[in-house]
């Protein structure tokens, strides 16, 4: 070693770093290691020294523990927030699924009703779904997902499980527009079931989703709760279908006639599946001069949709 002469003598404490001692200590260490390697005495020594070691361990672990504690305190805040958000999303999703399941059940019920209606009617019908509700308050029209390509033609009555909804007024290749009974421009010949009084139910001009029976003779027997059924006059609608129920009767402004308001029997604003009737009933009215398969027969004045031109060619 490149030690300056005298280094040992002057600056080192006597023999502190003598090679001999080094060798002794190294030998001791090596012997210890070999013994421990063979016999694993260290575990025993540690067992005896545990009283001394463990406090040291605890002490050494303190900062780490504190750090971990603060980390969990801080991290758990964000983690909790994230978890909360996730749970809320999951809840929303579950709620949506539940609603969807409920909607499916309701739809199932409605479809079954429709099926039953179809079966009991023995009619050739075509089912259609609502595409969009035309919420223009002045016009009560809906769009269905069947059109000319599916054989829909203008004038076809549209019913749902509980009654007549309206009629097709416009046919597009794959969709059709249905004028509802409650459209102000719509009129349907009806009979009051109880008395057999024939009259016409117009759409409600005030957009209340009601039917209006105007110009009823004051002498006529019309009561609240009377059922309206289609009379079949005019030939557009089949006879005997529920149309509505009288809910209000009063004299009109002139005092010469009575006016009644009726609630539609069909779930006008709730149905999402409708039936299109194909086989039109035998017209009660005068026979159509020309027979055309595409045109609905019996378009006399009492029949519906005064605003709509007849599609006779």
């Amino acid at each position: 070693m490149a030690l300056a002469p005298g280094d040992n003598a002057t600056l080192f404490s006597a023999g502190a770093a003598s090679t001999l001692r080094l060798i002794v200590y190294l030998a001791a260490a090596v012997v210890l290691m070999i013994l421990d390697h063979r016999g694993h005495y260290l575990q025993t020594v540690r067992g005896h020294a545990s009283l001394l070691i463990e406090p040291l361990y605890r002490l050494a672990a303190l900062p780490g523990d504190a750090a971990r504690a603060t980390r969990t305190a801080v991290a758990s805040q964000t983690a909790l927030a994230a978890e909360n958000r996730e749970l809320r999303e999951a809840l929303l999703l579950a709620q949506a699924r539940l609603n969807r399941a409920g909607a499916l059940a309701a739809q199932n019920e409605r479809l079954q009703d429709l099926l039953e209606a179809q079966k009991s009617l023995g009619l050739s019908v075509q089912m259609a779904s609502l595409l969009d509700i035309d919420i223009d308050p002045a016009r009560r029209r809906i769009v269905i997902n069947r059109g000319a390509q599916q054989g829909v033609s203008v004038g076809q009555p549209v019913i749902d499980a509980s009654g007549i909804m309206g009629q097709v007024v416009e046919v597009l290749p794959n969709t059709a527009v249905v004028m509802l009974l409650t459209d102000p421009n719509h009129a349907i010949p009806v009979t009051i079931e109880r008395t057999g009084l024939r009259t016409i139910a117009y759409g409600d001009k005030d957009a209340r989703d009601l039917l209006e029976l105007s110009n009823i003779p004051t002498s006529a027997d019309v009561k609240v709760g009377d059922k309206l059924i289609s009379s079949g006059l005019g030939g557009r609608f089949p006879a005997g279908f529920p149309v509505g129920e009288i809910r209000d009767v009063r004299n009109d402004d002139t005092g010469m006639f009575a006016t009644a308001l009726a609630t539609p029997a069909a779930a006008i604003s709730r149905s999402s599946e409708v039936l299109l009737l194909h086989d039109l009933p035998q017209p009660y009215g005068p026979v159509q001069p020309q027979v055309d398969a595409s045109a609905p027969p019996g378009a006399d004045a009492a029949a519906a949709e005064p605003a709509q031109p007849e599609p006779t060619p």
């Binding site: 080192f12 502190a16 770093a17 080094l22 200590y25 190294l26 001791a28 260490a29 090596v30 012997v31 210890l32 290691m33 013994l35 421990d36 390697h37 005495y41 260290l42 575990q43 020594v45 540690r46 020294a49 070691i53 040291l56 361990y57």
Partner: peptide
């Protein structure tokens, strides 16, 4: 004893270290 690996390992290392430093 604290590290619990091999008895004498640290002893050897520190002895060598101390010798060189001294």
């Amino acid at each position: 004893v604290l590290a619990g690996q091999l008895l004498g390992e640290h002893a050897l290392r520190l002895t060598v270290l101390a010798f060189i430093v001294l």
